[in-house]
Amino acid sequence: MSPAAITAALVTGTATSTGLGPRIAASILQVAAVAVGGPLLIGLMAKIRARAEGRIGAPISQPLRDLRKLVRKERIHAEHASAVLTLAPLVLVASAAVAVAISPLVITTPVLAGGADAFVVVYLLLMGSVALALGGLDPGTAFGGMGSSRAMTIGALAEPALLVSILALSIQAETSNLPGIVTATLAHPGWMANPERLLALVAVVVVVIAETGRIPVDNPSTHLELTMIHEAMVLEHAGPDLGLVTLGEAMRLGLLFGLVANLFFPWGIATNASVAHLALGVGVLGAKAAAIALVIALIEVSTAKLRLFRVPELLSGAFVLAVLAVMTGLVTR
């Protein structure tokens, strides 16, 4: 089956004999898996870092416990803030949830698979970032605005690298539809070793590090306001709202890890909505995401945080790699 034919089938909904009901169920499963798995991945990375540094570290489930603690706390609203501050975490979580629901994480054909274009997912992530940045500016404090400014700067530099990397994948698959890319790669396992994919993989990993705010771009566990990027932006969220922000960020991390895993190495993803396939899909996704978490945690342990104004060099390097990937793809086509 040619790539174009695969996507045609996806768009028209004939790719799978699975009905709409099971696909919705599979999407809900994906959202649930990422909502639980995202915080667990963060816990896992903290654990790996702790072990590598010779500490025992908190249990892997600590981020989930923190979430439970946060949603039970009192709501506190910053003095000069408007409704935007309250709305921002909700938009963040909602955009992440929709992006997760339509992406091929556990199953190749989640609900709305035909409309799950890479650009939809990237711009849904952008929507969450914009909401958080506006939330950071809303209370009118120095730190919030500084964090928003830095986060938007890094986002603006990371986005081109991400879009062009996805473009590199979509040249071969002849579509920018995410389920289409995954299905086409499943049908042509040899593609996984192509040079343009390896180049794009490096670029995407850099972008994922930047977008999820990990070292060397941002330090998620910093307590010094002047070095903060993401943490400064969300400084005024408290209690349940902070819980939503944490959950939203964890879901975005889970989504990005899952996308890297499935776009580049789509083994084990469920191709239909039978219970056995879905169970296998969740298990394999968890294993692949944990592997990526291990790699990123090791990068975090072994590198120092970059100065803010060295980050653009890293990201423009990723952009150049992505463009190189596209050119390699065009030449070897």
Partner: peptide
Amino acid sequence: ASGAIEPALVLAG
């Protein structure tokens, strides 16, 4: 059919 978007459904979601 190399691509499609459904903004109405995404927005509803």
